[in-house]
Design a protein around this nucleic acid. Structure first.
Lengths: 117, 117
DNA sequence: GGCTTATATCCATGTCGGTCGATCTGCAGT
DNA sequence: ACTGCAGATCGACCGACATGGATATAAGCC
């Protein structure tokens, strides 16, 4: 787990020259780092990344039954990955009768994208 | 592991209406998804994300001895995280005498940033 | 009601990841 | 050579995660 970043205290150096120029300052506090890392971790699997890619490129909601044949994994595994993405706040789902439709939550990746610059 | 995405085959639906409009097409192939997910996974830890944030904001190379006091973790743990970032191709290090200096590899995050849009 | 289909949940298993203490490697200074 | 320090590696522990088979839930069709 991370902690709130603060300026590095001056420590005695063995020799004359310091190890590096001045200090290092942080811009991202612990909570924001946790939120950003949560999104990154959810995207840290090739299948989930491809899922998000497909959902983003496709305007509107996509039925799970369209997603299953795209990957070489069992259906419960795909459902598991979709749940991970839902828990990370990246996608959401909507049931219509037998089928479930998934879509990327608008702005879900904006914070991460702006951090990347 | 993911597979190459292809168009969803037409499957028989139980009732008349199809489950969703046409089909879904992919833009990211398996190899690119693997590369992007590797970067995302490396950023999927709050400490590593803060590390990258500090290194990016600081022009030039940063000594490890400046990084250690920023976090509430043991030194081997920080070294482990830095190694993860190095293995992911995000940062690199350079030794000068006793000290090691880390820096973000130029363009290491460009592909990921452009995927995010 | 009974059958089929779509999706989610449960469960077991094997692997991966974060953490830290101990230890090792280099380097610098005496 | 000896001592001290910075950083990396090793080993172990433990919890998290990916995977898939079996099962549950839920809705349409006959």
């Amino acid at each position: 787990m991370s902690v709130d970043l603060q300026l590095a205290p001056k420590k005695k150096r063995p020799a004359g020259e310091p190890c590096c120029e001045p200090v290092v300052y942080p811009d991202v506090d612990r909570d924001r780092a946790l939120r950003l890392a949560t999104v990154a971790k959810a995207l840290g699997d090739p299948i989930r990344l491809q899922l998000v890619d497909v959902l983003r490129k496709h305007a509107g909601k996509v039925c799970v039954c369209e997603l299953v044949p795209l990957f070489d994994i069992a259906q419960p595994t795909l459902s598991h990955h979709l749940k991970k993405l839902r828990d990370a706040g990246i996608v959401d789902s909507e049931r219509q009768g037998l089928w479930a439709y998934y879509y990327v939550l608008p702005g879900a990746l904006d914070d991460f994208a702006s951090w990347l610059g």
